[in-house]
Write a protein that binds this DNA or RNA. Structure first.
Length: 841
RNA sequence: GCCCGGGUGGCGAAAUGGCAGACGCAAGGGACUUAAAAUCCCUUGACCGAAAGGUCGUGCGGGUUCGAGUCCCGCCCCGGGCACCA
């Protein structure tokens, strides 16, 4: 052993040792004390930076911590390997996606190892490999057979730059979440998963997710967006020319049916189903058609912008308000979305948007709610009244409190057959087809005789062809491969053509956590028994950016697979931890951003590991702040973590002979003098606090600061050969525990020092220390003395002192006498173990 | 607009209603050294004071309490999610 902390020598050695001894291989049959710790599998983009590292370092710390508690921990890793970047690289450089992806995987695997992050690589999954995507395709077919995968033509989000469609979830503020291009609407035939069938269950079961952060649950609730309201049918006033309509009514959805008697017009979405037929041959037809065409040109961004003025045109048609019997004009407006029924009733007096629209187009306004002060007068209003009140001018409902009227009027509509209570969700079906190469081919065949036919199980996987061009044309590159496209119908054997679209990569990641349990199993997608034994996942760790997309899709898939009878549980993740992003000031504009190449603020771990070692990078990453919060990377603060590890190393080195010689000594409270008793107390207080910090909220940063405090206390202890046996015993115990306590964070140095202290068997087999309760006891305690809430002194009292004794000591204290002079003592509050407050006045 | 988080030294931060700023970074001073690095020791919220000590201090304004960073009410600011969703 040497004075200098030899991180570069010990780290590769221990990494090799963990590898050789299969320290992280998990026997799936041992489930007595199982713990499934899952980290979100990465996209193999090339190189990991320290921002990515936070995820794996936190995960590895949890895995090691749980192992030391005796759990049989499963910690697998894999690769979310399909996706656009590899394909874009292929377009640029000509390197086939699979080749570049596998190369990246190899690099990243080495990086994880260099961090000391260990996984059971026997269970590795790679979503772009046929042994994996065969089963993604198989699952697609299961959804197809259940009617949960369907194809339809609809307006979809189209990214012109990626030349592919996007799911709603992948459009952020009207922009493509990959390349920031403005997303446009295009009418295309696309594949969808019917996630809306599961909307209510996905919403209800959020309540079951006790181990999830509240904010993630809120985001999911918002995204699902349930709203309760009433659907009301307005009968269409027949056309003057006697031509018949396809539908004789217009239904609208409203959450404020209580205001319906103030409805003075209706507005239809430009995409409303029968709109074109409704206006055919009318004088307004031309204008309406022009309006529809203009609206279609609007990008999502335009349409969602606040500043955009609401526009509309009159259709020439009328419908009857069933509550008043009055006809109201039908308009078409660009602010009405195909949500609910695609038609809204407009109540300008009580809705801000309708007010603005009515004022602009000079439409009538009618009050149907009177405020509690009964002071609403239309001619004096300059905005809509959206508050509560009494129904007014509302026929038999006049005088009813409006909140009660919602129920009453919904019931009335139901009884009379022109409406009903309805629930609407904001959630749309999940668009999963992509016109791109690097994804799992959708296993469907088009046969002239049989139509759409799923590929037979025995013919899976439908392999991605390799003889294709990667140019983005808006059509799938798979179409260019005749060998791929031409096939025979699985049903009748006639010549047929394959579906050329591939699946969204989020499909691959929606079930990978199940596949780890039988990654090499060629006979089935899911091993029911293994899954039921090991799932739900005990702890899932990943980035907050997946709060909606991945986590919602994974929940959906779990429910579908549950309904297929393949697993017994219907929520995948018991506890979820979302770590905050690591940010750094950009080299370009000095602003704080999430680490990314494009912002020029990436810190590469390789150099840091070379200069300070992996343990330092790990310790700093965990010490940087509360792990759920964003953190700013500070290069100079890394030094502090290095100094601390070097200090532990040095301390063991300095006392190595003494530490080895005292190996057989055992701390005995009864024989301790004060200094070692104090250190022994500090040690046990630390064990208690650290365990608490890690068990609860993963507060690694406070756990580490507690180890630092303990180390400070150890350093204050003077020790040499002449010290008592108890002093030596406690010193050794404290040093040993520091090593054990820090081992989940800095495993290499812990292993090495553990060995230096004469232990055989790795530190993972060391048990996590337990608090010796008796050691926490104090004979005397210091208490703060307050007068009127201000600290004026300190007293030391026997820990067994009664309240009365403490009070007596307090009032005779010099400082208290001084500060209460001329006042009468009204009250004395004793907070056991903390302080005494004398209230005087 | 609605729904979540936050706002504490020069910085990252800590604090079951109970001594605000633990722990670390940075900075300053000192020891060791020919020197540097490393290490060790000291100082470091603001203001007043020679010192002892005192006053103020957790975004702002009120309140509850013996006692508020923490609880309640009303604002301001920052971050995130949703949003012409009827």
């Amino acid at each position: 052993m040497n004075e200098k902390y030899p991180f570069s020598e010990i780290e590769p050695r221990w990494q090799a040792c963990w590898n050789e001894h299969s320290a992280f291989k998990t026997d799936l049959s041992d489930i007595a004390q199982k713990y499934y710790c899952l980290m979100m599998f990465p996209y193999p983009s090339g190189k990991l930076h320290v921002g990515h590292g936070r995820n794996y370092i936190i995960g590895d710390a949890v895995v090691r911590y749980k192992k030391m508690h005796g759990f049989n921990v499963l910690s697998p890793m894999g690769w979310d390997a399909f996706g656009l970047p590899a394909e874009n690289a292929a377009i640029k450089t000509g390197t086939p996606p699979r080749e570049s992806t596998l190369k990246n995987i190899a690099v990243m695997k080495e990086q994880l190892a260099a961090w000391g992050c260990c996984y059971d690589w026997d269970k590795e999954v790679t979503s772009c490999e046929p042994e994996y995507y065969k089963w993604t395709q198989w699952l697609f077919i299961q959804l197809f057979n259940r009617g949960l995968a369907y194809k339809k033509k609809s307006n979809v989000n189209w990214c012109p730059s990626c030349a592919t469609v996007l799911a709603n979830e992948q459009v952020v503020e009207g922009l493509c979440d990959r390349c920031d291009s403005v997303v446009v609407q295009k009418a295309l035939e696309q594949w969808f998963f019917k996630i809306t069938d599961y909307a209510q269950r996905l919403l209800d079961d959020i309540d079951k997710l006790e181990g999830w952060p509240e904010r993630v649950k809120t985001m999911q609730r918002n995204w699902i967006g349930r709203s309760e309201g009433t659907e009301v049918d307005f009968a269409l006033v027949p056309r003057d020319d006697g031509a018949l309509d396809k539908s004789d009514k217009v239904s609208c959805f409203t959450t404020r049916v209580d205001t319906i008697c103030g409805c003075t017009y209706m507005v239809l979405a430009p995409e409303y189903a029968h709109l074109k037929e409704m206006v055919a041959g009318l004088p307004q037809e031309k204008e309406v058609l022009q309006f529809i065409a203009d609206s279609a040109k609007l990008t999502n961004l335009d349409r969602e912008s606040d500043v955009l003025e609401k526009k509309g045109v009159f259709t020439g048609r009328y419908a009857i308000n069933p509550f008043t019997g009055e006809p109201v004009p039908l308009w078409v407006g660009d602010y009405v979305l195909m949500y609910g029924t695609g038609a809204v009733m407009a109540v300008p007096a009580h809705d801000t948007r309708d007010w603005a629209f009515a004022k602009k187009y000079n439409l009538p306004i009618k009050l149907s709610i009177q405020n509690p002060e009964r002071s609403l007068v239309l001619t004096e209003m300059d905005s809509a009244y959206t508050g509560d009140g009494m129904c007014s001018d509302s026929g038999i409902f006049t005088g009813l409190p409006n909140r009660d009227a919602i129920d009453a009027m919904t019931k009335h509509a139901d009884t009379h057959g022109f409406g009903k209570g309805t629930i609407n969700f904001r959630l749309r079906d999940w668009l999963i087809s992509r016109q791109r190469y690097w994804g799992a081919p959708i296993p469907i065949v088009y046969c002239d005789r049989c139509g759409m036919v799923p590929v037979n199980d025995e013919d899976l996987p439908v392999l991605l062809p390799t003889d294709v061009e990667f140019k983005p044309t808006g059509e799938s590159p798979l179409k260019g491969s005749n060998a791929f496209m031409n096939c025979s119908c699985p049903k009748c054997g006639d010549p047929a053509r394959r579906e050329s679209d591939t699946m969204d990569t989020f499909v691959d990641s929606s079930w990978y956590f199940l596949r780890y349990l039988n990654a090499r199993d060629g006979s089935q997608a899911i091993d029911t028994a293994a899954c039921n034994n090991w799932l739900p996942v005990d702890q899932y760790i990943g980035g907050i950016e997946h709060a909606i997309l991945h986590l919602l899709y994974a929940r959906f898939f779990t429910k579908v697979i549950h309904d297929l009878g393949l697993i017994s549980f219907d929520e995948p993740f018991n506890r979820l931890f979302t770590q905050g992003m690591i940010c750094k000031k950009s080299d370009f504009d000095g602003k704080l951003y999430k680490m990314s190449k494009s912002k020029g603020n990436v810190v590469s771990p390789n150099e840091l590991i070379e200069n300070y070692g992996a343990d330092t990078v790990r310790l700093y990453t965990l010490f940087i702040g509360p792990p759920e919060k964003e953190a700013e990377w500070n290069d100079s603060a890394v030094e502090g973590s290095f100094r601390f590890l070097a200090r532990i190393w040095r301390r063991v080195w300095q006392h190595r002979d003494l530490l080895l010689a005292s190996k057989t000594l055992v701390p005995d409270l009864g024989k301790m003098e004060k200094p070692e008793r104090d250190l022994y107390r500090k040690l046990n207080e630390s064990v208690q606090k650290i365990t608490h910090d890690l068990d609860g909220a993963f507060h690694f940063h406070t756990a580490i600061s507690t180890i630092m405090e303990l180390m400070n206390a150890i350093d204050e202890t003077k020790l040499d050969e002449n010290s008592s046996d108890q002093a030596k015993a406690v010193f050794r115990d404290a040093i040993e525990k520091v090593i054990v306590l820090i081992s989940p964070f800095a495993p290499h140095i812990a292993e090495e020092l553990w060995k230096e202290l004469g232990h055989t068997g790795g530190i993972l087999s060391a048990k996590w220390p337990e608090t010796v309760e008796a050691a926490l006891h104090r004979d005397k305690i210091q208490m703060a003395l307050q007068v009127n809430g201000k600290v004026r002194g300190q007293i030391t009292v026997p820990s067994a002192a009664t309240k009365e004794e403490i009070e007596k000591l307090a009032v005779t204290d010099e400082a208290v006498i001084k500060w209460t002079e001329g006042k009468t003592i009204k009250k004395i509050i004793v907070v056991p173990g903390r302080l005494v407050n004398v209230a005087a006045g």
